[in-house]
């Protein structure tokens, strides 16, 4: 019992560390594939190139902030905003910075190798060298981010004790992966809604590539790409490791591992939510999605994923009775955490 006990804050940091790392990786996947597509299509003019990014920004919920910061975007502005802009709290660089901040807070709970990998990535993306690399060879830059995140995952797998910390770390990664996979689908769904053939952003094939799902798709369905099959693979597959259902099933197992409750039953609110969500995905398929409308279905799914994340926080990090109290965390620095930072620095140096 003693060995498995963990500070709530530590659990929270581990969860967010892996979650933000996963987010950085997925954004890199998204931007990389979008840029590839953009290069392929030489007919696109300057104006339409901007339009081209709109669904990407919308699906990742960054459109409004982008429009505020860049009322008259120049070429490359969107990619830059998604990648290096530290004013964007959800840019790749911001995610990596936050992942590192979280790691720094639990430096004593992760392995040296994990820290080294994450710190090296941080140093690359915040350095002039990183900026140069992005300008010279964006593909190499995004590859580096993706590889580093996967390496981090592998190092974690190979070096971290399988205790509660590991469980929270996995939860963060899985929930973020489920969320991002659903967002990838949403990009296409918006393009479908606009039904504008002139602006043809990510093709289904590109989305499969962004999710590293191409090979899996071909093996399962052969060459022809249809919307139903893509939805089937990315939402409902039990085998594909980035599918929403697979991620949720793993998350559900981990939650049961943390509480010690057998799977299929639930002992707290988060297990109830993931359990219900999983049941929904198990008893549905592409026809239900198409009937409801892809965007509406995904929107609903994301809301529930959010609730799951929030409930984990309330169950394991906050104490009963403190649910209303706000804890500063992650990216959105509010005035309280600024104040706290100031006091942390005010300590007399001896």
């Amino acid at each position: 019992m003693e060995g498995t006990m963990m500070l709530s804050r530590v659990a929270d940091h581990l969860y967010w560390m892996s979650r933000q790392m996963e987010r950085a990786e997925n954004l890199a996947r998204l931007v990389r594939v979008s840029e590839e597509m953009l290069l392929d299509d030489e007919t696109l003019g300057r104006g339409s190139a901007q339009e081209y990014w709109t669904p990407v920004l919308t699906a990742t919920a960054m459109e409004a902030s982008f429009r505020t910061l860049y009322p008259h975007p120049v070429q490359g502005a969107a990619a830059r905003y998604l990648t290096l802009d530290q004013r964007n709290p959800d840019s790749i660089v911001s995610c990596i910075c936050q992942a590192r901040e979280n790691a720094r807070s639990v430096r004593d709970k992760i392995s040296d190798e994990m820290w080294s990998e994450l710190n090296a990535l941080y140093m690359l993306v915040t350095s002039a060298e990183g900026t140069d690399l992005l300008a010279r060879s964006p593909q190499t830059f995004y590859d580096k981010v993706i590889t580093s995140s996967m390496l981090f995952d592998g190092i974690t797998e190979a070096t971290l004790t399988r205790d509660e910390g590991w469980n929270f770390l996995q939860l963060g990664r899985l929930l973020e992966r489920a969320d991002m996979t659903s967002r990838f689908l949403d990009i296409r769904s918006q393009a479908m809604a606009e039904n504008d053939a002139a602006v043809e952003p990510l093709q289904w094939g590109a989305i499969l590539r962004a999710c590293s799902a191409h090979a899996c798709y071909r093996r399962q369905f052969g060459g022809e790409i249809t919307i139903e099959r893509v939805v089937d693979l990315l939402l409902f597959s039990n085998e594909f490791p980035r599918s929403v259902r697979h991620c949720l099933r793993r998350a559900d197992e981990i939650l049961h591992d943390i509480s010690g409750t057998p799977t299929g039953r639930y002992s707290n609110a988060c297990e109830k939510i993931t359990g219900a969500l999983l049941a929904r995905l198990s008893f549905a398929g592409p026809p239900e999605v198409m009937a409801r409308g892809l965007h509406a279905y995904i929107d609903d799914l994301q809301k529930q994923l959010n609730t799951a994340g929030q409930t984990i926080f309330e169950t394991y990090v906050l104490l009963p009775g403190e649910v209303s109290r706000h804890f500063p965390r992650g990216s959105r620095a509010d005035s309280f955490s600024d104040w706290q930072r100031e006091q942390q620095q005010q300590q007399q140096q001896q």
């Binding site: 901040e101 720094r104 807070s105 706290q340 930072r341 006091q343 942390q344 620095q345 300590q347 140096q349």
Partner: peptide, 8 residues
């Protein structure tokens, strides 16, 4: 004090 302290 936290991660922002110089001696963290």
């Amino acid at each position: 004090p936290g991660v922002h302290n110089s001696a963290y």
